[in-house]
Design a protein around this nucleic acid. Structure first.
Lengths: 131, 131
DNA sequence: CAGCATCCAGGACGATACTG
DNA sequence: CAGTATCGTCCTGGATGCTG
């Protein structure tokens, strides 16, 4: 991109005008929730395909309720596909879609940023709280 | 850690081990809230420095309460600096720090992703809801 | 195994009113 | 102008127990 180099700015107003005023914020809010990013990263780590219990183990601290709900949202958003095998005991596998995989790049950018800067953030917080 | 270039993967477990298990998620949750990204983008748009009322106008729909609270968090995290001018009527200016500016790149990545993919997400949701 | 149903506590957020 | 205070609502998410 960068064809018209003029529109290289970040324009919140433009964001709000781009088709749907709520679209961007909605997507950002989605992946900003407590578990989505970790589930997405874990699923990718597990080769892009895993079953429920594998994810449960891969994401320490997540409850069944939240894993279930997070996966359901991801499925609804087209990020993962849920496949049920008619077996006993039941087996369910979740696979990342192409759309889901595209989320990995910007996510990685955020994770890197967080890793590189969280210490400075902590220091700033300490300084702030001292007063 | 990180010496071996093999560790180029996204490892949630590694994320959890990197100094503080909650750090990454905490930062992600922060910028995933309802207003932070828009305030950051707007402040950048306004030249990296603006007063309260300018931001209020730049971020449509935000209330004084939320703008105030969002700015306070950003200040605490070292993303912006709050400068009070002892005048009548009072004037307060907020300026982005270097740390805050560093947040812009990954944020832009997310915004781009959201813009490029929200339509596909909508379609997926429609298909899902039809059943 | 892979979940759903229920209950509950805490926080996010909006609306409104007030102030140095 | 740049907030704070207060109130009420909605939603998130944790804990627990039950099921096909």
């Amino acid at each position: 991109m960068g064809a018209s180099s003029k529109i290289r700015q970040l324009d919140p107003a433009a964001i709000c005008r781009s088709s749907d005023p709520l679209a961007v914020r909605e997507l950002l809010t989605k992946i900003g929730d407590k578990w989505t990013i970790f589930v997405v990263l874990s699923l990718d780590l597990l080769g892009g395909r895993a079953r429920f219990s594998e994810l449960e183990r891969a994401v320490p601290g997540i409850s069944q309720r939240m894993l279930s709900s997070t996966l359901k949202n991801l499925e609804r958003d087209g990020m993962v596909i849920r496949e049920v095998f008619p077996e006993v005991p039941p087996r369910v596998e979740y696979e990342m879609t192409e759309l889901g995989r595209r989320l990995l790049h910007p996510t990685q950018g955020l994770v890197d940023w967080a890793k590189e800067n969280w210490e400075q953030v902590r220091e700033a917080q300490s300084r702030y709280d001292e007063r």
